[in-house]
Design a protein around this nucleic acid. Sequence first.
DNA 1: GTCTATACCAGGATAGAC
DNA 2: GTCTATCCTGGTATAGAC
Lengths: 203, 203
Amino acid sequence: MDAADTTRGRIRAVAVELFTEQGYDKTSLREIADRVGITKASLYYHYPSKQALLLAIIEPFLDDWTALVDAAERLPRTPANIRFVLERGIDAMLRHRDATSMMLRDVAAVVTALAPRLEDAKELSERMRTWLAGPDPAPADVIRAMAAVEVLGATLAAAAVPEMPEDEVRRVVLDAAVGVLRLSEVAEPAPQPARDPEVAATC
Amino acid sequence: MDAADTTRGRIRAVAVELFTEQGYDKTSLREIADRVGITKASLYYHYPSKQALLLAIIEPFLDDWTALVDAAERLPRTPANIRFVLERGIDAMLRHRDATSMMLRDVAAVVTALAPRLEDAKELSERMRTWLAGPDPAPADVIRAMAAVEVLGATLAAAAVPEMPEDEVRRVVLDAAVGVLRLSEVAEPAPQPARDPEVAATC
DNA sequence: GTCTATACCAGGATAGAC
DNA sequence: GTCTATCCTGGTATAGAC
């Protein structure tokens, strides 16, 4: 992420704004350039393509999410740890809410822009779902894992409502996701601290 | 919806396929025309614009969903009726799964194409959420209603997995949505048959 | 009523001057 | 680091053949 006072940073900020307002494809590079106060061709000096610009917006979130999934897979799948991972996921969405709410709106554009890292991204969500579903899952477990991930998306819908207190959103969405997973039925193996310091540091 | 053997119907079918595969904006009219075996300009005879083509794909689902929300608002908000409405929502998604899975993928394009009916559509999801949240809702109730609607989206993700039995999907998704709403806490007023014949007919 | 040929314009991308 | 000029693709539009 670039500082807001560099040209690169200003382009990124304007792009997020316009992409979110109008969608990726309805936003022309000319429009972005005009608002920044440069020409279309100048954009190309800073970003090699429109897709690259979109990717630059998304990538910080993708990196955080990667760290989260990596961390999850190193944790034993206890109820406390599942809660912990879901909570970190919600936090990541809120932290990058400019990028994530745009992603939700423009899935197709994001998928295209992600091309170089698309397999990574798919694998990432697959790994998260697998971890949530648990070992040797029944079809119902898989569906519940999918539903839990969908619930996380409500974070953004809720955070978009102005008068909604943010910690209320975090609490209720977390509870909902946990409920969908039927966490009470997950076996609790050896006691293990959920707030593993190593994990807390990585994401 | 047109029969699959009319040119109009064949255009629609090819469009759904390509839009779903590649996204709306990455699919050119030339590509569609080629696969149907006509020219780009011929498309123009059958559909006045690319947007109109997209709209023709979405509209049947939108109509069903409108009927569902209309019906819901005429029902007392009992646990049984909430289950009933959610179930009908899942059915509608599965029935129009070609359109709905494309909508999920291409929210931005759909929003643009919907322009003439966008306010309707927004109002529709708002009304559904309001009905689910119940009268005089706390912030937490609103968030849970949002999360429940998100859960319905898992229907499509799950239905996309080939070996997933469809009635398992319906059952588990419904349970998850109901759980998110904490339906057990909804007061049960006068007993009322959930399978109201009038409602069953409208959607 | 169905289709083709053809033109027009907006927008993404590139080359090369300053 | 920014500009002007130019190219190409794709959505849109119309005139007219069958």
